[in-house]
Amino acid sequence: MKIKSQRDFVSGLALIVTGAAFAIGATNYSFGTAIRPGPGYFPFGLGIILAILGGIVLFGSLTQNRKGGDPIGAIPWRPLGCIVGAIVFFGFFLPKLGFLISFPVMIVLTAAGGNEFTWKDALLNAFILTVISYLIFIYGLQLTIPLWPAHG
């Protein structure tokens, strides 16, 4: 038994696990009857179907030849960490520090995910985008976004 597509092997396993998790989770809810299906009826069936599809993908990854083993490839940790980190940072600090602090910091964090990062560009970009966003969203569209750090 040799893995012929690394991508599909992992995909298949992930689908089986996800499908099984939903199906097991659905057992907490009533199935109802054929006449009156309950809240667990639909997710249980779907979970099983997903797991079966995962099985098909997994089977394919072991039997069908692909070019060069179809590897997943390297994971770009820096962009992944920076982008996801920037979003989480923005979500966490916006209510606490306000838009005018958390927004530019998020942009610099995001920019750090690129491989052409320089402080000068990132700060310039953060400044320009903060001004534009302020004008569009807060001044123009009047959205309720906290501007300054919250008291206490």
């Binding site: 920037a86 998020m106 995001t110 995910g113 970009n125």
Partner: peptide, 21 residues
């Protein structure tokens, strides 16, 4: 692109937050 992707991110982040504050 180094200016473009932070801009896309920034506008999307505001968009997501303001969906339901």
């Amino acid at each position: 692109y180094r200016f473009l992707f932070p801009a896309i991110m920034a506008f999307c982040a505001i968009g997501v937050y303001t969906l339901s504050n």
